[in-house]
Write a protein that binds this DNA or RNA. Structure first.
Lengths: 339, 339
DNA sequence: CTGAAAGCGCTAACAT
DNA sequence: ATGTTAGCGCTTTCAG
């Protein structure tokens, strides 16, 4: 293996000069720099990451802890991951993918193998939080735990999104609404977005004098249909449906058709999901977009800021935006029946 | 930061004893081991990964190069990734996720940051192959390039799968078949599975005296419908459809319904996809399962073997298995029309 | 603008 | 069964 000393010898300089030529941390004469670069190219030299980590206490690696659970939609996870990895790359960082669910998975972080940490799928009282606060490296949470003191978080503003969804349907004249939410397992874990979604939904329903009909929705086709049935039973006059469950969306839309309801005509469907999911349904679905990619990017930016210098903890909530597509429509007031 | 010397001092032993107690590479008396363990626990000591890497030339990290392309179904990628990560974890390895598409992304590997490498989404003449063969660390390819000499590969046997698909439908009496394949971009890159799929499909059609109707299929709903239309135009009497495109499968099924064709009654649909994708369609689809998770696991096993000791290069192709579900059926010979 | 030299924390011979 | 010691390859003072 070629080392920095080999390069130095070949370039006729000292090892430290090679190091500085590489890092740019001090000025090098053009001539020396050229000789060093040539030597590096000739020898095909690549600095040893471990030696670097030992000497400089930096690794240029970030850890992303993303539990791969069967009940959370992988395509959405992948969006987060993509956002994180691409943004990290653009700052010359690579990403170590940690998929363990428990705090024990953080030992690699403690070993100094990474310079910072991003935690996904955060629960209301996440047991990992007390341990990450003891780490040397800064951490960013994707999600918003009950007690976020002393730790920085990013997430989509699910509370505002739920309110926006209700207000939008209400504004179109729909008064019989229901919410098809995440899978039961997500609720049981108290994954933070689910709680906030429900809170916002209930609050806005209360403000608008509507009955808050809510149903957890499994990810399988059968489970989605079952949830839809449950909702239609509880609320037969339903005309507005809010769906926050990427995996179930397609099944719900096809289920409505089987019930003889036409999406965009008899029943308005508003989804909370990434834009591309809403667009790729048979009927383009009006959606409040979950900017998963952006959230991943922002998480990296916040993390890099905190790695560069001490920063106050901060919570960023990304505001919802609504895209009207073909699945929503103004409800005509029913023609007055003769009396 | 607490070091091995801190632990040694506290336990009243030398640093090497601590090291050996940790690695188990030589026998330690029960008493000393206990003192060492106590000291480690008291101090909350975690070995420094960089120092370890430098001294031992091992990192316990594997690299997984998985280009995140918009046109390959993320849920399938995620299956591979899950297989790789979980199997790696079970052997105490973590995974560095590399998403760059080019060989330049391999510099982190060259820097000794990882002990081995798995490459996904391999093309027929993949430019990364010449560079991985120069690395110290062993590499496993998921896919089968044109020239696989000197490098080990795993993949699903797409050639055999395509033949099996044709034979199965043919055996049910279907003679008017078509194949809806991967997106055009995948074909243009000559991603290796696509070529093998087509080869097998054409060969079996030829053997069975069938016309090989093949159509590339985009991932959007519209593109999937367009491909279906194209196929129905070319082959109006179609009764058997092979679909190898997870993202398009749902759209194709719903598109057939819009064409007045009933899956499982008028037209047999056989998908090449992970089992859970086939099961979660409105009509459970007969499928030849792509064992993405298993492939990821096997890749790690092969890699670990090669890291442990020199091994001959090897190519493993996983044999296809077919699961009958509700989308296929025996075709009744048409009642003889009077003459 | 460049060198020399002292570690960074750990592993693995080499001793005993 | 345990201790001593020489690096692993790099960064970064300190010196000039």
């Amino acid at each position: 293996m070629t080392t920095i000393d080999d390069v130095a010898r070949r370039a006729g300089v000292s090892a430290s000069t090679v190091s500085y030529a590489l890092s740019g941390k001090r000025t090098i004469s053009a001539a020396t720099r050229l000789r060093v670069e040539k030597a590096i190219a000739d020898l095909g030299y690549t600095p040893h990451a471990g030696a670097r980590a030992l000497a400089s206490a930096r690794t240029n690696v970030l850890a992303l802890m993303a539990p791969l659970r069967p009940d959370v939609d992988v395509s959405v996870i992948m969006q987060f991951v993509t956002g994180v990895v691409t943004k990290a790359r653009s700052h010359d960082y690579d990403v170590l993918l940690l998929t363990q669910e428990d705090a024990a998975g953080l030992s690699r972080v403690a070993s100094g193998m990474v310079d910072g940490l991003i935690l996904m799928d955060v629960e209301a009282q996440d047991p990992r939080i007390p341990v990450v606060t003891t780490l040397r490296q800064p951490t960013i949470l994707i999600g918003l735990p009950e007690d976020s003191r002393g730790i920085s978080c990013v997430d989509f503003d699910f509370d505002a999104a739920a309110r926006m969804a209700v207000r939008h349907l209400r504004g179109l004249g729909h008064r019989n609404l229901a919410l098809l939410g995440p899978p039961p397992a997500v609720l049981e874990r108290h994954t933070t977005y689910a709680d906030r979604l429900f809170t916002g939904y209930r609050a806005q329903c209360a403000a608008d004098g509507l009955e808050p009909v809510i149903e957890a929705t499994g990810t399988s086709h059968a489970a989605a249909l079952a949830a839809l049935d449950a909702v239609l039973t509880r609320s037969p006059g339903l005309t507005g449906l809010v769906v926050h469950n990427e995996a179930a969306l397609a099944s719900v839309v096809s289920g409505l058709r089987d019930h003889g309801r036409h999406v965009g005509e008899d029943v308005a469907v508003l989804a909370l999901c990434p834009a591309y999911v809403a667009e790729s349904q048979p009927i383009p679905i009006t959606s409040i977009d979950i900017p998963a990619l952006t959230i991943g990017e922002v998480a990296v930016e916040m993390l890099l800021e905190r790695m560069a210098a001490p920063h106050a903890t901060e919570t960023r909530l990304l505001a919802p935006t609504l895209h009207e597509r073909q699945s929503t429509f103004p409800l005509q007031p029913p023609a007055p029946t003769g009396r």
